[in-house]
């Protein structure tokens, strides 16, 4: 197993869900739907760091991040007129990012990881890999621990703790039932707890 030493963007503003920012983002999307490249650039710069971090966190593959961000922004450029204001602009954008990251990850990664969602922390798989984890440099235990999770579990962790979303928003973004979000988080927590305990 390979543990990536990721350096994430320094983000001065965390998930910004204020009404003012939401309106600004919605305005930018409206302008993009009118083929306004300047608006696209502003949205790009505003979301770049957050998308970088999100995609890095869930894919664990630094080399595909820029490509995925550009894919996301290209979709926004093409589909801006379909944004229907039913959800926050950030939820819409991160939903696209999740799908594109998942797609890129599936195309470039090991096929067995997707099945991890169904495994519990007491499974033989985790125990086996937990031994490996202990051999790693663990100056950043979380980075090592996140590698034991599936992409979907990492996405739930990131969207909850970093983006500060409610589980219903995550369900909407990931296009899955709310209970699935809770279950993914539950399994992820158990795995991470094991790693955390072993490092303390």
């Amino acid at each position: 197993m390979v543990v990536l030493k990721m350096n994430f963007p320094r983000i001065t503003v965390l998930a910004n869900n204020s009404t003012g920012q939401t309106n600004k983002d919605a305005d930018l999307i409206l302008r993009i739907s009118n083929a306004d490249e300047k608006a696209l650039e502003m949205l790009y710069r505003h979301y770049y760091a957050r998308l970088f971090r999100f995609i890095a966190r869930i894919t664990r593959q630094e080399d595909i991040i820029d490509e995925v961000i550009n894919e996301v922004m290209y979709v926004i450029w093409k589909k801006a007129c379909t944004y229907n204001h039913q959800c926050q602009p950030s939820t819409w954008i991160f939903g696209i990012a999740y799908n594109k990251a998942r797609q890129a990850y599936t195309n470039s990664s090991n096929p067995f990881e997707e099945s991890l969602d169904d495994l519990d922390s007491d499974s033989s798989f985790f125990e086996q890999n937990n031994c490996e984890i202990q051999q790693f440099e663990t100056d950043n235990w979380l980075e090592s621990a996140l590698d034991t999770l599936s992409l979907d579990q990492r996405a739930v962790i990131e969207l909850t703790y970093f983006q500060g979303l409610h589980y219903s928003e995550i369900a909407e973004l990931m296009d899955c039932p709310e209970n699935t979000v809770k279950t993914r988080m539950h399994h992820a927590r158990k795995k991470l707890a094991s790693v955390l305990n072993s490092n303390q």
Partner: peptide
């Protein structure tokens, strides 16, 4: 866990220029 997830490392911002590729 929440605190750990929110911790950020340093960032080499070399990639910020990639908007030109999109354009």
């Amino acid at each position: 866990l929440s605190v750990a997830v929110q911790q950020e490392g340093s960032f080499d911002s070399a990639a910020l220029a990639s908007f030109s590729h999109l354009k």
